[in-house]
Design a protein around this nucleic acid. Structure first.
Lengths: 376, 376
DNA sequence: ATCCTGTTGGAGAGCGCTCTCCCGTCAACT
DNA sequence: AGTTGACGGGAGAGCGCTCTCCAACAGGAT
């Protein structure tokens, strides 16, 4: 009776060992493919595994291997939340009194506009695709976390410190994101998408944004455009800054020291608004470089509404080569950012780091390419 | 030396106990808030925790509590992959010989078009938002999984069986998805978004799609539209079917036994194509109900291109109240599906089920509401 | 024959935690 | 005073796994 009661649960290594007539250690060896095991015994073990329907228990394995075989995919924002209640907390308080499993009640979570915004940008889906495609073959599935408030950031750190995940892939939506520093300060492994605004000793993957902008400028010039403007992204994020700088520099080098600029926020709406501004300033412009595809789409819409044909009257180049670029009309000529590849590389860097923690921190910069479609 | 070597790792309960001068059990009690503990000792323990920087080890806790404190968020597709090598495998083979941790090499993962498609639909981001907003306050973070091939489905089941997650939230993109049945067959807890095409004993949340369609029909009729057509979604998924049925029934009840129908695939492109078809069949139509917002947006575009004003010449109603509905021009009148709330409810159902597995399987049906904007 | 070396299986000690016992203490009853 | 029970703390037994030892035994070289 007592025996049977225990047998109710999932089969364990012990059960398999008994069924196969070998020791627990041997079964473990067969399953993990470590050391030589007699082929006959190996077959017996595999049979026993099949018969019992055994599945290794992840928690038990993690406990001894000290790895979770899991990584966190963190979408991080700047986060401006109310200051802590006790502004002048003592050192004991600051040392890290957050304990338990984070099941504390009363965490509201907000209206979720941060998450909604994140998913509205096609960029994030590409990152997930790249990460999952790389990680899945290794049997690893990302844990999705959002870190838009300081509380949420603490939870991310806490989650990693508990060993719930072995490391983090961090995608920041804002510059000045404090999360990367928090993570490295805690000595936890992580890789970022995009170079942090403030230098941190941490791996990242990034794109040579300036080169991409150069490609765009050269193409517009080669096409014969002479009255060229640009719609910039937010300048507090390196990508936005670099794309503008790269574009301006190239234009200057080709004898166009002045380029009209309107600022956008990487959204279609802001791109449309920026286009209106540019048209007002220079009604006869014949070329536009938008710092991302969404803004380019907005720009195209406004151009069409104002009676300009794209590309006949105005050539438009976007950036990213997102899905929108291919599906909008006319299809967008754009600078390709291989997000999926970059996300996969980010995962690779993290896994590398996990298997050899002594290795130096390395980053990888990808080169953009120009994708020619109809808009320019 | 040996002592120091052990002390290198993260502090354990034992360390905290030593620092506080109590037993391991007492520290555990304080941390988990179980049973009464003398306030003085409690304070001592909390101090010790702060001093040592203790964080509970998740794996160790999971091992004994037998729960992972984690749930899987699975995006599942129909999945048509090559049949298994041995079509007539023996029973031993079928019993479940998949073992190990899934780290088997050679899993290609495909081009990831499935994932790309998933994220292209704004629906998924809303689900994630709802799930995360509900789960995060409980200290739970979803593990993101895709199950578009039979191999991936096996991995999901295997993942749950290993105890890596306590249950699954399943969002199917196709009807006839075999995953729900696989999960329930394995006796694993799960909750679906949307009623499965084939009945399965499993909880789900869903929308009263027919009621939503009725709302749309009644509004178009009340508005004075008399030549009304509809763009249906895929009819193999219940949502698509129900929206069409509900619309037709209501129209019939109001004296419109025939309603022109064009089929779409819930994408903007397919909505546009369907609109072309409808215009060809009935050039003077004055009202259109599209089974989702994306198709409505495509329809609006075509109508505009064909010289019809929305809503003056043709009233258009969408479905879902996705972000696109509010941001397109004109803003779309639409039937709201409270995806975030539904996703949160789905999470609640799962957590309920986990805490009381004996409870009967329950589902929740949400009522849609009509959101009035400019398009109808 | 003896020794060495290489190979393969088993025994058993944990990993860090929870939780059931059990025991000592003290207040409130007979 | 004796008994009862509630309460709060400690001891220790695992949870299911990995991995280090160690033992057993094979096959050569001496």
């Amino acid at each position: 009776m007592t025996e049977d009661a225990r047998a109710v649960g999932a089969p364990t290594l012990e059960d398999v060992a008994k069924a196969a007539g070998v020791s627990r250690a041997t079964v473990s060896r067969v399953i993990n493919g470590v050391r030589n095991v007699d082929p006959v015994i190996q077959a017996a073990v595999r049979d026993a595994v099949a018969v019992t329907g055994y599945t290794p228990n992840r928690a038990a394995r993690s406990l001894v291997t000290r790895k979770a075989d899991s990584i966190a995919l963190v979408v991080s924002g700047a986060g401006d939340d109310p200051p802590p209640v006790a502004a002048t907390a003592g050192p004991a308080e600051a040392t890290g009194s957050r304990v338990g499993d984070g099941r504390s009640a009363g965490f509201d979570g907000g209206v979720g506009s941060f998450m909604t915004d994140v998913f509205a940008d096609p960029f994030f889906g590409r990152v997930v695709t790249g990460v999952v495609n790389f990680l899945r073959p290794q049997g690893i599935h990302p844990v999705l976390m959002f870190a838009e408030t300081s509380r949420a950031r603490d939870e991310v750190v806490s989650y990693l410190r508990q060993g719930s995940a072995d490391g983090a892939l961090v995608v920041s939506t804002h510059a000045e994101d404090p999360l990367p520093a928090l993570i490295t300060d805690a000595g936890l492994p992580a890789v970022l998408y995009a170079r942090p605004a403030r230098p941190v000793r941490i791996s990242y993957v990034d794109l040579a944004h300036q080169d991409g902008a150069r490609l765009a400028a050269e193409h517009l010039l080669a096409r014969g455009c002479r009255r060229i403007a640009t719609i910039a992204g937010p300048l507090d994020v390196p990508a936005g800054q670099d794309r503008l700088t790269g574009f301006r520099d190239t234009m200057a080098r080709h004898g166009h020291p002045y380029v009209p600029v309107a600022g956008g926020e990487f959204t279609e709406e802001s791109g449309a608004a920026a286009m209106e501004l540019l048209l007002a300033e220079q009604p006869d412009l014949d070329g536009v470089f938008a710092a991302n595809d969404l803004m380019a789409v907005g720009a195209c819409r406004v151009l069409r509404e104002r009676g300009r044909r794209v590309p006949d009257d105005v050539a438009v180049i976007g950036f990213d080569d997102s899905r929108a670029a291919a599906s909008c009309r006319p299809p967008l000529t754009t600078v390709r950012q291989p997000v999926e590849d970059m996300a996969a590389e980010m995962s690779r860097l993290l896994l590398d780091r996990l298997s050899r923690p002594d290795r130096p921190v390395t980053s990888v910069i990808f080169e953009p390419t120009l994708i020619l479609r109809a808009s320019a």
